[in-house]
Design a binder for these strands. Sequence first.
DNA 1: CAAAAAACATACAATCTGCATGTATCTCTC
DNA 2: GAGAGATACATGCAGATTGTATGTTTTTTG
Lengths: 198, 198
Amino acid sequence: MQPKPPRQTNSDRTAATRADLLAAARKLFTEKSYADTGTPEIVMAAGVTRGALYHHFADKQALFRAVVEREAKAVADEIERASPPALFPREALIAGSHAYLEAMRRPGRTRLLLLDGPAVLGRAVMDEIDARHGNRTLREGLLAAISAGNLKPLPVDVLTALLAAAFDRAALAIDAGAPEEEYRTVLVALIDGVTSPR
Amino acid sequence: MQPKPPRQTNSDRTAATRADLLAAARKLFTEKSYADTGTPEIVMAAGVTRGALYHHFADKQALFRAVVEREAKAVADEIERASPPALFPREALIAGSHAYLEAMRRPGRTRLLLLDGPAVLGRAVMDEIDARHGNRTLREGLLAAISAGNLKPLPVDVLTALLAAAFDRAALAIDAGAPEEEYRTVLVALIDGVTSPR
DNA sequence: CAAAAAACATACAATCTGCATGTATCTCTC
DNA sequence: GAGAGATACATGCAGATTGTATGTTTTTTG
């Protein structure tokens, strides 16, 4: 007797293979790198064929982008979840900072979001992704802190971008083994420097 | 009659081909990217063969590293040259900031040093290169400014790294068309925030 | 000037990517 | 509910790339 084919709907199949591909790709892209991971290896790990990959994704880069997008959302969600309603703007910013650095400790995230992402997709795309998922909290926090302390009006978007860059570098350093404590201290000092009245 | 072979010394030959390779590679790596540039294309542009390339460099990545190293040194030199002896620490820092942003406007430098460099060589290697060429000025400037204003003692190396990251992001944004003015303003605000007494 | 070394050239094997073409599995409509 | 059409997937192929192994030529050295 034939093993009865488990009658599957099309969107089930799509969802399943896409999920398998994303999981396998994430694993390999983070363990090695985008460049050092070939599509044959990915599909092997996912248990599908290259045909399936190129059916669901335009090319290897599109798969990578999907992985990055998913990861950026995961980071944003973790920060969201870890951030209490917050009392004062400054405390909210500090809590957010902490949450970000913690979230970026999940193995592979720095490589995915801070090294390969910008190189493979370009800064413009990464900026767009960041603006959509992350960075939101930071921007709003800074805005609140600045207007609360009525500081001289710095362009908030620019400030957000540059502080975010500092956060990113901190995450990379911590991932490389640097002491989180020192980086947190300096980050808070940077924030205080531009948000609390002189 | 034969065109007399212009009797060349060996180190001349080496210097010449290495220079040709570095020039061609720099041009292509910056116009496209590391990943999108093949070694056949490079040697074609340099007027040599792949044999010569692999004789002088261990692999494509080693060639890339040589290009990056040379470029980092060029940036450092430009900053050095553009920085007057400087009166006060703060003015020196501001002058250095300006010089860095100007130097990074040379086309291709952001891609080379800020996008492909970290992805291809890794942050550790880039940190080492930065520490050797650039970042020196920044670190010393911050040290001077902090001790002059007797601030609370922040770990200077960490502060240097995070501010450098902000500078890098600014260079990327400016290269993408953002107004240099705003970024300069925010950078100065960040520096003042952690170096001038509260 | 012969031998060794360095600089370069050529050829090859192993991959990899994207596409074109073929097949199986749903979905939809009459 | 049966067949046409669409969707999901499989396979094979062409072009290109990387690194190496193996020649050949030019310098250097003893």
